[in-house]
Amino acid sequence: MANAAAISGPTFGVRVRKFVVSKQFTRGALAVLGFFVLWQAGSMGLFPFMHAIPTPVTVAGSFWEFMSTGKYWQSWMDSTLRVMYGFVAAQILGIPLGLGMGWNRNFKDFSYPLFELMRPIPPLAWVPVSILFWPTNESSIAFITFIGAFFTIVVNVLGGVSAIPRQLVDAAVSFGASPRQVFWRIVLPATIPSIVTGMMVGIGITWNVVIAAEMIAGNTGLGRLTWEAYLAGHTPGIIVGMISIGVAGYVSSMAVKMIGDWLMPWKKVF
């Protein structure tokens, strides 16, 4: 945005270096490290209930093997693409729908009841119809992923529009803004924080959904990879899959957070 430079301060590189030596980073890293140490000890016999779980060292070995196969990286690719398709489609359709419902009373009267009827249906309950409806497996998984993010983004945007302080709109109208200008210059920017919140929640849901959908209906992807490891009785493989999904979700959230910071130079996201 136009004024991002004015307050963003130090360059990206400097900020990364600062972050790595910061307390915040040290604490997070310590927790992750502690988790692996406990896990190692637990699997080696400290906690008897963990006897079936391979140690992190074993898992690390498997990780190495997985990473040298093309299939592993293809799984990343496939799941990421599905998330992208579903997520982006959900934003493209959901943001205007939410804005429309929030801004136009008549439109909301028409669409809201139908919307609220569909919203409680969990994404996975859409699996059978979407397999029947969509020509390819790929498109049905992307569709289910879309469903996961769509309702969340609409609800957030709608809430955001309804929560715009009336005085902001009144002020703009006083200054001579036309309804169209009020929409683009006031309503839209005032809703950006809610859009970003919707995106943050939505990206998490899309990863949940894509993994589950792949387990049920997919032939590829990180979800399928994990499921196949289970079917083959390869426990370290299951954990490799789980960790990969965790990393994928984390990286995606960070990316969305960066988009959020860029969209809202006037405040930091979370």
Partner: peptide
């Protein structure tokens, strides 16, 4: 109008 709770555009 200058409003009671302020109405500067935060963005």
């Amino acid at each position: 109008v200058v409003f009671q709770h302020g109405a500067l555009f935060p963005w």
